[in-house]
Design a protein around this nucleic acid. Sequence first.
DNA 1: CGTTGAACCTGTTTGC
DNA 2: TGCAAACAGGTTCAAC
Length: 276
Amino acid sequence: MPELPEVEVVVHQLRLHILGATVRKIWIGREDIIRQGLSTLGWYQGVTLTDIQRCGKCIVMTCLRGTQPRYLVAELGMTGLLVFHKQAIPDEKHTHMVLSLDGGRVPELRYWNARRFGRLYFLDQPGLDTFLRRRFGLDPFSASENQFVSLVKSCRGRMKALLLNQQKIAGIGNIYANEILYRARIHPHAQGARLSKARIHQLYGAMREVLKEAIRYGGSTIRDFRAPDGTPGRFQERHQVYQKAGLPCPRGCKTLLRRLVTERSSFYCPTCQGRS
DNA sequence: CGTTGAACCTGTTTGC
DNA sequence: TGCAAACAGGTTCAAC
């Protein structure tokens, strides 16, 4: 569910509603949802949320107590949600954390996750630095075109795999990898190193356009995704290829879209997205 | 180092 | 209808 655009939408709403709020109480449903920092939980009582950012697909909240910062990092995985009200979640049994807040526009923030592929991390500054360094490569919006060209040129593997590799470029998941490659007319199995500079230029533009447009439409809701206020995304209405195998190519080339089942599902047009 | 596939979980959809 | 298999937005680890 949550790839860069969805996380960006979440962060935007969190900033509007809970930035500056104080954490009165933290309720944890099951402790194994916390991958790091369980023993530091007590420290967070009374902290103020002074900054909220997206890093890759993670939400990073700065928690200040006096002048000391620590961080709460939420990883959503496939089914994770951060929401303001219980009405926004399908059921109560997968709520794993509730922050009770003072001084924000909403009284609480809930972390819900049915499949529990995502986790929570309570980190100090060095812990956060290590976490970010080990995990995330270039950011699609901060990376220059030259940096992106070097990255692609150094890739001996498949382009789809490169776009999904968070340590190389952070934030893109299966939906947007497919949509980006379709827009750039590049085959999911094209070898990065063999693409011309002109085609990498296309890809760089397609990546930023698709992600930007998806943010503008509130992300994609396939099933569970909601913004914190409960609003579903609308970008799924604009998907060109994702989960559309068997339908005609939207460019009108009369070819039927296909699905490759190696790795994770790749959806593409065999005519528009020629190899290499 | 790069690639592939399985594993981690739960829920929903599909097919017999 | 009933049940099993397939599949789902992600990450990580082992094996090659």
